[in-house]
Design a protein around this nucleic acid. Sequence first.
DNA 1: TTATCATATGAATACTTGTTCACATGATAA
DNA 2: TTATCATGTGAACAAGTATTCATATGATAA
Lengths: 121, 121
Amino acid sequence: MEKEKIKIECCDSFHVHEEVVNSVTEMMPEEEVLYDLAELYKVFGDSTRIKILYVLFEADLCVCDIAQLLNMGQSAISHQLRVLKQARLVKFRREGKSVIYSLADDHVRTIIDQGMEHISE
Amino acid sequence: MEKEKIKIECCDSFHVHEEVVNSVTEMMPEEEVLYDLAELYKVFGDSTRIKILYVLFEADLCVCDIAQLLNMGQSAISHQLRVLKQARLVKFRREGKSVIYSLADDHVRTIIDQGMEHISE
DNA sequence: TTATCATATGAATACTTGTTCACATGATAA
DNA sequence: TTATCATGTGAACAAGTATTCATATGATAA
């Protein structure tokens, strides 16, 4: 199978070996997957959302309680919960007049723990 | 020990119990740590940088080789390598005229793998 | 030294994003 | 039903960011 050759013209002293080009093109995920992956990390890339997740580690809470705990506006929290919801990091249920948010699964915790480990080295 | 009370005035039907307020304020990391954590994830939150990391999974490479492999400008890659360097996700060494970049440690792989797991559910 | 090659960097641009404000929606209680 | 409460949402603004272009830096080779 003839793959599209990638020309390496710069770097006289060093160049990508055919071998590397092949292994890279083989294991590199699809463009769309890479995009989705970046989108996921973007969700973690905001301290307000990180705080929301930390708060939800402790208890399932409604929007206005989260807002109070984080000392922020209800609207701001609602907007961010939407982002977290779309990334399937939180889920919600209705209870009376309130909407109670909770963590979707354990990946959230694992990912945050890994990040914590990295920055505290 | 009298802690600063957090007033919960909204949500008549549901309110944060003292208990929850305490556990949240106890386990919530410092503002600065949360900020740093978000900064770390921001670095992963760009598909160009994700691609660079994936390429470096396969081999240590110089800037122009990465640019060629990703079909992007040398300047763009250099700018992004700077970001990755500042987040201590990649390291570099000089070899002749080139600067060879490589992954800093195994956290990178773990974090990316966890993210991958989440999006492929 | 000078010429050359690889990389880094600053400015500019276009694009994205977080918060606030004002208001809409939607469920509950009377 | 109507009034009320909690949440969701769109527009607007400010702040941040990725890429490109042109150029600077810095190491190597002659």
